[in-house]
Simulated assay, not measured.
Amino acid sequence: MFAPRTIPWPLVALFTAGYLAPYLLPTVVGRLDSGLPVSATQAGAIGSALLLSSAAAGFLLASRVDRVGPRTLARVGLALAVLGYGGATLTTTVPAVVAGAMVGGFGSGTATAVAATGIAAQRDPHRVTTVGLLGVSALAGALYLTIPHLGPGHGIPLAAIALTALAVWPLTARLPVRTAARHVRRESSPLPHPRAGLILAATLLCWSLAQNSLWGVSGRIGLTQAHLSEATVGVVFAVALGAGLLGVVGAGALGPRLGRALPVGAGTVLIAACIALSASATDLTTFATGEIAWNLLYPIVLSYVIGLAASLDPRGRWAVLVGSASSLGTAAGPLTGSLLSARAGFPAMGVVLAVGLLVIAVPMTAVALGAGRRSLPMVEIPVETPAYDKATAA
């Protein structure tokens, strides 16, 4: 399905490094709660601060990747991730952990911004996105199986994110130093399809908030409501992320055959049902069913939404801005989930989130339908190196 020689692997690696922190959010928040003198709500707030910092990087850098240069920004982002997450790993002082998480989050967001900009320049951005989701799902699944056996403490998942950023660093040599001057001069051109882009950004913020409100407390649902051990919860998450791999492969195989409206609209409705089921789980069977089905569908819908954002502007600005809006929702997720579950309980939280998803499925589907009806022009992006060369992409 994927021809290895035509995949822009540096961009896929950056995508993986940038998205790993949100994928490991349940174990990060759970370990903060158990390893540091903080409450469950405070641990959720730390997770939100990490992801808010990541979103801020995306908003700040959406139109600056070309000007600064992909290679430089990628290296800055990876360095911040290594220093921030690595520093938070080595201390038990809560303010220092918060600061390290925020620095690391900014680094993750920077890497994601570079990856999103480069992926949008590809001939088939949806295809490259599915490869990136495949990579981050596989890595996160392996870590969920491994982390419970490496001992207690808040630092292990943070160290895993830092080491991933360090491993990706050598691949930045294959990124362009800077974009051609004539492309940089076009940087101030207006964003195409502003209404569709703004609607997609606003709805994806809410979509991500709902997903990560549950994801941020899924570990606690398994441990406290379903009465499972940490190792069992880790196995469920690993299997769920494995199902996500199958979903990504399926999305890549289907490509545009189903259009974008059906996967985005119907997929969001099914995700709403999975969230309500998972949040109400009181035993292994219900918990595993909800989490596995949800994780199977989540990356499928996300890949189509990211591809939709990339199609709105081939220079990648909507891809970065919509991705950053998603990160804002992701950032608010852990705290929202913690507050809702603390005040109303996990099952009621699931119902609220499910209803919200059903509401926003309508405008998201409308944007997808509109994009399918019009012809979106592709703009060639000249660069100094063949890293983003469309002639060799897809």
Rank of each mutant, 00 (worst) to 15 (best):
H126K: 06
A391G: 10
R182A: 15
L191V: 02
G222Q: 12
G118C: 04
V103S: 10
T285W: 14
T289W: 02
V128M: 01
S137V: 08
T203S: 13
P363S: 15
L32F: 13
T16P: 00
S208W: 09
L60P: 00
T41F: 13
L163R: 04
A342T: 04
P194V: 13
V359W: 04
A226Y: 05
L205N: 15
A261D: 09
G267P: 00
A173N: 14
P37L: 15
I292D: 14
V177A: 12
L20K: 03
L143F: 01
V136F: 02
G100V: 02
A368E: 11
A261L: 07
L270R: 08
E291F: 03
L340Y: 09
H154N: 08
A121V: 07
F2T: 10
T285H: 12
T129S: 08
R75G: 10
R64H: 06
P377I: 04
W169V: 14
L80M: 15
A272W: 08
L228N: 11
H183F: 05
G222S: 11
A116P: 00
A348Y: 02
D124P: 00
V98K: 01
L357A: 09
F287W: 12
D124F: 00
V217L: 05
A45N: 04
V379M: 12
T330H: 05
A165D: 15
A366N: 08
L339R: 06
I221R: 08
A96K: 08
A74T: 03
R174M: 01
L158P: 00
V28K: 10
S327K: 06
G86E: 08
G234Q: 11
G290Y: 01
W215D: 14
G87I: 02
V233N: 12
G35T: 05
V383H: 13
L24S: 07
I156T: 06
G337R: 11
L205W: 04
L171S: 00
V355G: 12
A45L: 04
A344I: 09
I306D: 14
R67F: 04
P299T: 04
R195K: 10
L297C: 09
L204A: 13
L143A: 13
V136T: 08
T164M: 12
A266R: 07
V248F: 01
A310G: 10
V359I: 15
S53Y: 02
G107Y: 06
A281N: 04
H126N: 12
P70D: 14
L376G: 09
H183E: 13
L80I: 07
S189T: 09
T130Q: 09
R195G: 11
F2H: 11
S324V: 00
T203Q: 14
A361S: 09
M1Y: 11
G118H: 05
Q122M: 15
P194N: 14
T285I: 07
H149Y: 07
T27H: 09
G141Y: 04
P70H: 14
A342D: 15
L254R: 14
P4L: 11
A138H: 08
A40Y: 10
A391S: 10
T285P: 00
